[in-house]
Every structure is written in structure tokens, then in C-alpha cells.
Design a binder for these strands. Structure first.
Lengths: 215, 215, 215, 215
DNA sequence: AATGAATGAGTGTTCATTCAT
DNA sequence: GATGAATGAACACTCATTCAT
């Protein structure tokens, strides 16, 4: 999994350059966008919460939407980062014999990421419907590249005889919605409930694999 | 399923009383709220699209939020209507021997509803995060009543020996997210794709049942 | 004082023709105009309070301002009625030998009227500053006719040797503001206080007469 | 009277801090509120008259009512300032042997103030009936403190044998309405008439003192 | 880099008035 | 005569953005 770390660094370490005030602006914006939505959060509220002057926001971000994108675009990029590495199959081959193991590893990895970026992720999914640029990014990167990669991956495990003969796209959809269903319920709908994460993930992987696996 | 139809009628046919202009206002609002979001849609835009004066909106709805709720609350109510009938288990007993059959019937039924109320449903899920009243309604009705009913239902099929020994709540979550995953992908993410709905549903049911069923 | 009664009837008994609804509208308007002011009272609020439809108001009064004037103009007319009778001096001669007696009679008479028309009177003095028509009426009738009559009246008692040698206009101003001062404090500022009206009037008349009288 | 001047300065010279635009806004507001009334003056009209953008008004005053109060509250405070100094009696004792002298000094002093603040004072008395906060301030400061002080003052001159044996409250009312009657007629009703202020004041004081004085 | 006063278009809402029923 | 749905101009107020300091 060190490869992914590298990719992260490679792609996103520009954020180290944020000034102190900028950092506060971004934090305030994340908190408020998540809570009230982008459209219902005013720049003056963000400025007040961040403890800076209104003008300061526009010194760093040309427009309010720029501020949103500066939060949401990197989040989307990081979210899908594990899938955009070259030769993903090779990595998987070397590491995970079984679809089951791959699934579990991936869930754990993405869970780790979501746990730390929950608020930004919440903004991402809340705002995608309202911003064509975000929809575009989403389509281009997720709906096309990630899904395609995931499909090839399912084909890979199919060839190994681990997955039953359903259309790969359907298997991907089922796997993906099961995983995201778990993570959304866990972190968005009922974050305060008392979860045994390890066990819940295991059961979910078991159900998915039972669902699509060859006995 | 005639019982449900009756309940629908019983509960929601007050909407026949909408005046002509009111109807146009609601239609325009649904379209625009879904597209740009509640907060980014102005009442003047709605009025223009509906072909009425702006004041007319406020003659029928005290506030803009009232207009939103008049769209979204009934949608939520109708969405969960099948689950709030008394003696759901009896109905199921009489009709569906197998969890599989129940699942399929339910998906088909809810799919029918969603197909006709897609736009309002889209607004519902988009706006829930931003409106405490909606969150409250959602929690009270879905998170509590519907899930509880669903859990009892899973218990019911467990007793019949059809479902493996996993926590009922986990089974419900898995079933529900699989179903909603299907419907969301089908109707929200990729509505324009060429779907063989019947087949896709069958496959999904099969995967769920494989996932949680006893051999 | 029967002459005045006649004048009242003569001038203002058109109000008997008010329909039931119209009566309610006027009552509601008087109450609300007095409390919140003309500009801050909406016709819809008046309609609601009167229990009629908004349109009904405009059936009886072409505009909102018409409604105001229908309340305020007659009130002003009635207020000054005692002064517009012809041959006022003759009446006074016949009845009041002393300025003192005249003053007391007049205060008692106007007090009676104000007690019964307090609310409309309140509207009158509150709205005069904002409506040129009212200002005009006020100037034309009060500032010109009534004052002129009052001045002649003071001249009359001066000739009788009852009033010291100050400009009549000054004496009128002093008398009038003393009287209105009493009535305003009594009925507008501190209506709830415990007043011995008879005594207060007597003392006030005494002070005025001392102030301007010849020992 | 230098003591009062000091108090004025002390209490109200914070207004020097008004920015240029703010000053213009206040001036425009004063002019328009006086002419058309608070409720009938729109913020856009004020902005236009002041030569600023409408938003600028709300940068300095949270609400339209705030703007009103920023004009009217200090005016009320300044108006009653001479009465709130400690040891008013001592001051009077040292300076004015006779009630007559005190009255004249006070009228001259308040006349000076009113002459310079006529418009704001007009707003004050016009708007008091419509704004509970103002009524409250008025009651608390004028109806209670100032009147009470005035009553004690009359008692003071009574003890000196200068005032006849009428209830002090009645004497105060009579004095006050005579004075305000003069000033209102002079500056509000007939400001354009040709007045000999000095003489008018002298005559008024004479009438009051005759009215309540011991021969 | 940071400020915050200033902007003016735009917001949701209210208004007096009209008119078909 | 009475209604109340409909109007659109006007309202108080907010907004993202600019710019002189």
C-alpha cells in the first residue's frame, strides 16, 4: 500500500503551502458547507468563523465557488486515488489471491480515509448534484475510469473462477453499493451508534462474496 | 398489494384540491429544486417558470420552505407507505413464502413509485441534510418505524430458516443498501443508460439472497 | 348646548347609513390605526380583524387613504363643531358672564366628546403630520377659523375687563395649550391614572384665569 | 448652566465617530422620517437621498429600526439631560431665587436645544406612539424621573412660599404643558410666523407664574 | 498580505388594489 | 354586495465581490 501513499504525496502535497489564515478559512468553510450547504453559507459567516476579514477570503480564492472546489476536488481525487495507480492488477495479484481479501483491504483502506475526511466527503456528495463542474469531474473520473478499472478487476477474479457468471458491471455495482452503503450508514446516517467496525466489515464482505461468489 | 393502494388513496388524495396555478407552481418548483437545489432556486424564478406572479406563490405557501415541505413531506410519506400498514407480516405470510419473493415484489413496487416521483424523490434526498425538520421526519419515520418493521420481517424469514445467522440489523442494512443502490444507480446516476430492468432486479435479488440465504 | 347637538346631527348623521360590514371595517381600522399607525396597518389585517374579505374594504373605500379620511375628517369636524356655530358670541353672552365659566363649560363639553372618540382623535393627531390633506384641513379649519373665533372671543372678555392686556393671540395660545395639555395628559398619556376629573378641571381653569385674569 | 454643558459633552460626544457616509445617511434619514414618518420612508429612498448604496445603510445599522433609534434615543437623552444632573436643587438654589427665574432660564435653554434639534425632536414625538421601545424609554425617563424631579422642584419653591397650595403634580403638569405648548406652537405648528421669542417667553412665564403664584 | 467599508443586484415576503365569480 | 385569488411593484435586508488603505 506504499504505492498509494506516494501517489497521495505526489498529487496533493501542495496543501502544505496554506498560510495560517487560509487554513482557518478552509476549516471554517468545511464545517459550514457540510452543515448548511454551500448555497446557504455566506462568505461573511465563513469569515467570521475563521476570524478573518471578508476580503481575505477573496484574496486567496477568486470566488466563493473556488473555495468550494479547493475543498471538494482534492477530496474526490484522494478518494479514488487507490484506483488510479497503474498496474493495479499486478499489485492485487501480488497481494490478494482472493476477491474477498481485496475487498476487505479496500474497505479498510477507504474507511481510514473517510474517517479522517468525513466532513469534506459529506460536502462532496451533497454538492455534486448542484454543480456541473463537480458532476463532470465525477463522471470523468469515477463513472468512467474507476468503474472501468473495477470491471477489469472483477473480470480478473472471474477468470480465477471466484465470481459467478453475472455481467461484470452488475457485480461491480452490487459490490460498490454494498460497500458504500456500509460506509454511508456507518459514518453519515448513524455515526453515533455503537459499531464493531471490524465485525461489520467482515460480515459485509462475507455477504457480498456469498452473493457473487462461486460456492 | 391492493391494501397499499387503498392506504395511498386514503392518506394522500387531498392533493386533488390544488388549483390550476398552484399546480403550475408546484411543478415548476419540483423541476427547479431538483436541478439547482432549494437554496439556489429563487421564488422569482419559480414564478417565472410557472407563469404566475411572484405574489401568487405566497398566497398558497406562507414561505418558500412551506413550498418545499409541501413537495417533500408527502413524497416521504408515500415512499414508506407500504411499510406502515398494520399486520405487514400477515400480508407477507399470505403472499410470499420466500424472502426472495418478498424482496422482488417490494423492489418492483417501489421502483414503480420512484419512476413516477423521481424528481421529488431527488429533492428529498438532496435536501434532507440541510433541513432539520426533514431530518427529524426522516429519523422518526424511516430510521425508526420502517427499519424496525424491516428487522421484524427479517426475523420472520429467519425463523423460517431462510436467512443465515447474522444480526438482523446487519441483514436489513445489507438488503436495503443493495436495493437502494440499485434504484439510485438506475434512476439517479445513470438514468439514460439502456437497462433491462426486469433482469437487473432479478440478478440483484439473487445476489442478495445468495449473500444472506441458507444454501 | 342644544344648538351644538343640532349641528352635530346636521353635519354628520350620514354615518347612520353604514352597512353592517362597513361598520365592522371602520371599527377595526380605528383600532388598528390608533395602535400601529396608518402606514403600518395593512388592509389585509383590517379585513381579518373586521371579519370581511379584503375586497370588501375597497368596495366601500376607493383606497386605503379614503378609509383613513372617513375616520379622521368627521372627527376633526366634530371636534371643532362648537366653534363654527354662527353668533357664538351671542350664545356666550347669554350663557357665560365670565371667561372662567365659558372655559369650564367648554372643557367639560370637549372632554365629553374626547372620552367617546378618544381612539379616532388619537389617530387624528398622530396622522396629521404625515398627510398633507389633513394638514390642509387642520390649517383651514382650526388654525384659521377656530383660532380667529377664539381670538374674537378673548377680545370680547377683554372688553369686559376680565383679561389682562396681553396680545389676544398669546392669551388664546396659552388657554388652548393649557386645556389641550390637560386633556392629552388625562386621556392619552396617563389614561389609567386615578383622576378626579371635576377637581382637575377646576384647578386648571383657576390657573388659567389667574394667569391671564385681572385680579 | 456650565454644569449641564459638561454633562452634554460627557454623555453624547461619541457621535463624533460617524463616518462621512454614515453622517449622510443619518441626515437623510432625519429629514425623511420627519417629513413622511418612519413607516412611510423606505431605506432605498434614504439611500438615494444620502447618495449611498442601500447596502451601506445596513452596514452601519443592523435594521431600519436601529437607524431610527440611533436618531431618536440620543435626542430624548439630550432633551432631558438638564433634569438628570445630581443636586439639581442646589444648582437652582444657587442660581434662581424665584420659580419665575428658573422657568425662564429653562425655557431659554430648552428652546436653544430644540431650535437646533427640531427635526429629530419632531421624529421623536411623532414616532413614540408606534414603538413600544420608545414608549418604554419615554416612560422610564420622562414620566418617572423627570416628572419626579420637577415635582420636588415645585415643592422646593412651595416651601419658599412662591407657589399656591395646589397639588404639586398639577402645578407641574400645568407648567410643563404651558412650556411645551409654547415651544410646539412656536417651532412645529407655526415656525414660519414672525415671533418675538424673548417677549413671547416673558409673557408665558408671567402667565404661568400668575396662574400658580402667590400674589 | 490583510482589511473592512462600500456596492448594487438579488432575496423572500408584503402590499394595496383589481376583477371574475 | 361580497368574495378572495391574482397581481407586480415595493419592501427591508443579504449577498458575493471590489478596492483604497
Amino acid at each position: 500500500m506504499t504505492e498509494e501513499k506516494n501517489i497521495f504525496k505526489q498529487l496533493f502535497d501542495q496543501e502544505e503551502t496554506l498560510t495560517d489564515k487560509q487554513q482557518k478559512i478552509v476549516e471554517a468553510a468545511i464545517e459550514m458547507f457540510a452543515e448548511k450547504g454551500y448555497a446557504s453559507t455566506s462568505t461573511s459567516q465563513i469569515a467570521k468563523k475563521a476570524g478573518v476579514a471578508e476580503g481575505t477570503i477573496f484574496r486567496h480564492y477568486k470566488t466563493k465557488k473556488d473555495l468550494l472546489l479547493s475543498i471538494v476536488s482534492p477530496t474526490m481525487a484522494k478518494l479514488i486515488a487507490p484506483f488510479v495507480i497503474r498496474d493495479l492488477n499486478k499489485v492485487l495479484d501480488a497481494k490478494y489471491d482472493r476477491y474477498e481479501d481485496f475487498l476487505k483491504a479496500m474497505i479498510l483502506n477507504r474507511q481510514e480515509f473517510l474517517k479522517e475526511n468525513m466532513t469534506a466527503f459529506k460536502i462532496l456528495i451533497q454538492e455534486i448534484p448542484f454543480h456541473p463542474e463537480l458532476k463532470e469531474q465525477f463522471k470523468e473520473h469515477i463513472a468512467e475510469k474507476v468503474i472501468e478499472k473495477f470491471v477489469r478487476l472483477v473480470d480478473h477474479y472471474k477468470e480465477k473462477g471466484q465470481i459467478i457468471d453475472l455481467p461484470s458491471y452488475t457485480v461491480v455495482r452490487f459490490s460498490a453499493t454494498s460497500i458504500f452503503g456500509l460506509l454511508l450508514v456507518r459514518y453519515l446516517f448513524l455515526p453515533e451508534a455503537d459499531w464493531d467496525d471490524e465485525k461489520e466489515i467482515d460480515m459485509t464482505v462475507q455477504m457480498i462474496v456469498n452473493g457473487i461468489g462461486k460456492g
